[in-house]
Design a protein around this nucleic acid. Structure first.
Lengths: 202, 202, 202, 202
DNA sequence: CATGAATGAGGGTTCATTCAT
DNA sequence: AATGAATGAACCCTCATTCAT
């Protein structure tokens, strides 16, 4: 996963697109003229840097997710205690999903996006990028948990990773559909997820 | 959640759309003319039964998910043992995701779909429909597990439901990205998920 | 050279295009919207009958030249005397070139047109179509001339055909650039061309 | 017909354009960026010397035809015998038309070009320029023919000029559509044209 | 009731031209 | 003077929707 260098026009396009997404615009309806306007550049300029609208959008998603996941990874690495790492992730998920634009939701529909855009670069696609970061985050959490004795080291790596992923998705699902759970508070949902994680890993 | 009665033209449209989706067509690129052709009706006829393309597609998704979830619920209810119910669900997930068109993937991007179509009917939306069925399936599984003594009845209903949902999504995630887990077989993934569920529920 | 059957929308497009050309519009600048307007049909309708603007224009040229040449051939066949046939052709050339739109000029740039449109149908192209008609017209004139004894039958067919073509192009050139020949009247130009023809064929 | 002095940037543009034309590019599709690249100058530089793309192309055509016709005129003047002059012209026509880019074809579509570019300079246009050179070439040939006694001096000047032009166009037509005359060799076509010329002029 | 021919608004893309460097 | 990055007007083509039959 090479981290490309982007010039300032490309980044202007990326930022313009995310400004729109954060305003609630839908990825599937977005117009080139809107992106150009949001990026404060001419419509034609986009075609000096990208071959098509689809490519521009796809590169923007890669860029944005790359940045965001790097940021998240850093934050998790900064924290030492196992439990705090998990709760930090809950917090990040919460903020992400509650915003107008959610990277997580984009990733859930990444398959659609890739089918739609017919872009299948061998070494760069949304899902692999995301999975790669998830693996790094999981590794960090697992080693921290093992040091603290929260994790039975006899479990396979897959077992441990999926236990973490599992409760993160569970919590994400809770946040996404909060209104379906009138009797469950966010803190309760966090505690439930954490308790389940501990039970699984012991 | 009223279960509407659809006439045969409407069902022809629904079936036509799913024929296309199963052929690998992308939901976001589908054309009215294609749907009409696949449904063996005239293009204009679609507009006698639906106000717009978007509505037709949205109704089709509701119809299809309704049917599929009803079917799944029946299958689960038919089975008695807790463990077999869970493994049956794994099997259903496996088949669903491996096909060209996956209801599960559609549900993951349901948020996008609803934003895209700007359809927010109060009492009928993809997610509520799905959650409703999930609740029924969970209830059935939970009571079966409680009878067998697999489940500690002191856990809250939310705890129990989310534990089940959690491992189902985990397994779905495994199937979706099998190629990322070269050293994990499907049977192993099923066993890991089941073990995790039991640990959570005990 | 099959004579295709065209439906009324196709003919509307053809007629619309020629209305524009006769108004002085240039073939290379014409817009789809202009053609549609001139044809009294919707812009999209053109694409129901032709794959592209280029194809529509090219088919129109084929259609128009086919019609015009058929008409000319008929007129020439109707006339008996050799000399009158030739003078009739002079008259046709005169009228054609003096109009706002000239088929003859189009044929002179037919090579350009075909390069431009990248259309090279095996059995239908502007030049072959034109050459075919020219051969028929030449044949008719030659046999008439031979009957009257104006033509030495010992000349090769190529010799006879090219003599005719030669003075026709010469006269066309005169009409096109009349203003360069201030001291030559049209009647003089006709007589010169005819005299030259007779000298060549004897 | 003043012979302008062009500076080296202007000539670079002219040469660049003809490089492209000789590579088979079509005059109607050529882009400014392509011309600039072929001329090894910046796109903006073209606009320092020409008001528009159209003007640049038009000036290039004038320049090129001027040069080419000067060259041809010189070659013809160098030769003394009437017949050799004519056959030299045949040779020039042959080479010209067989190349990727043909001045003669451009001149045939000169009317289109002038309509297209909306350039009607009073004292400088492609056709007048060409006609002027043709007049000079014709004069030279005619006086040579008269000296040799090939030409009946009683014919009008128009008669003599058009006889020459006539067989030159005839031969050009042959070369352009050689494939339509499978049974006629180039040498035969030359001889036919020359025989016809002699017959006309006697 | 059913159709599909016809429509035209809308949007992606191109490219001649400009202008800050 | 020379450049080429940036622009946005212009235009081809698509496709959801309509409506005469």
């Amino acid at each position: 996963m090479k981290s490309r260098k982007y010039n300032n026009k490309e980044i202007a396009v990326f930022d313009g697109l995310f400004t729109l997404l954060k305003q609630g615009k839908n990825l599937y309806n977005i117009k080139v003229s809107e992106i150009a306007k949001a990026a404060n550049i001419g419509k034609g300029t986009i075609y000096d840097y990208f071959d098509s609208k689809e490519e521009a959008i796809y590169m923007a998603l890669l860029y944005y997710i790359n940045n965001e996941m790097t940021q998240i990874l850093k934050e998790i690495e900064k924290i030492q205690p196992f439990k705090e790492k998990i709760y930090k992730l809950f917090e990040i998920i919460e903020q992400n999903i509650e915003g107008k634009y959610s990277t997580i939701k984009t990733l859930l529909s990444a398959g659609d996006i890739e089918t739609m855009y017919n872009i299948f670069e061998e070494d760069e696609n949304l899902i692999d990028l995301f999975m790669d970061y998830m693996a790094k985050i999981s590794s960090n959490i697992i080693s921290s948990g093992e040091k603290e004795g929260n994790i039975n080291i006899e479990h396979s790596y897959y077992y441990k990773r999926s236990a973490i992923k599992c409760i993160l998705i569970e919590f994400a699902s809770y946040v996404s559909h909060k209104d379906c759970y009138s009797d469950v508070t966010t803190d309760m949902a966090k505690d439930v997820a954490y308790t389940q994680l501990i039970k699984m890993l012991r």
